[in-house]
Write a protein that binds this DNA or RNA. Structure first.
Lengths: 116, 116
DNA sequence: GCGCTGCATTGACGCTCGTCGATACAGCCG
DNA sequence: CGGCTGTATCGACGAGCGTCAATGCAGCGC
């Protein structure tokens, strides 16, 4: 596959008020579920948290890849997180750096934040 | 699997500071991933949002079951949400009422809330 | 150019998941 | 009691996922 499938458009509408405020439409549920799915695997969640908490807001793959699975598997999971719109990647010389996409993260947090 | 597997203990430690603050341990990642997994299906996410946004903070299955899948499938998804600790259920006469468990919801929101 | 390191892709395998129809169970009502 | 409605469980099937070893590709240094 060539083009990075844009499962979640990072520049899309904020989408979702708190889940306690109104029921989700079918389309919104589909989009949000895709993001939750990206974090539904322990290995992926750890990779995500390592990028998010890394100094400077970005991390090279080599900094975070020690999570107990093979290197191809790490690469596979990072791709999933990219496709979900939760991470962005940039190649700088030999290394590839990942950072968190703030928009989708805020959308998920907003959805889960109780109004009361 | 017979007994209700307590994938996530509702009364467990708050578990997680924002994901931008520190990397998750393997155990915490496992627990949090289980919650995200529960919301990673569009049908489940819609059921959850319908319960969360329903008047009175609770909903009868009959109020929310029109999501385009069969009744057994709805029941199956509600069970998954229960097992993940995100919903609680109570039988009152003929009907079963579901409501959101505030603790786990807050844990997820807290994890995703950016510190900056 | 050549070899080496960092990361991505491919292809295969086993397991889990979402879905359904059929069926079972619980509580109300006549 | 007998029938009816609301909800849960069972068993089966196909699709998708996580994992790996093998391979490919890009960039650096000698």
């Amino acid at each position: 596959m060539s083009a990075e499938l844009p499962i979640v458009d990072a520049s899309a509408a904020p989408c979702c008020p708190p889940v306690t405020a109104a029921a989700l439409s079918e389309a919104d549920a589909e989009r949000m579920a895709a993001m939750f799915k990206a974090l539904s695997d322990p290995v992926r969640l750890r990779l995500f948290s390592r990028v998010a908490s890394h100094a400077g807001g970005e991390a090279c793959v080599c900094d975070i890849q020690d999570v107990g699975v093979s290197q191809p598997t790490v690469s596979h999971h990072l791709k999933k997180l990219r496709e979900a719109g939760l991470l962005t990647s940039e190649r700088r010389g030999t290394w590839v750096y990942y950072r968190v996409a703030p928009g989708p993260l805020a959308a998920m947090a907003g959805l889960l934040t109780a109004t009361r």
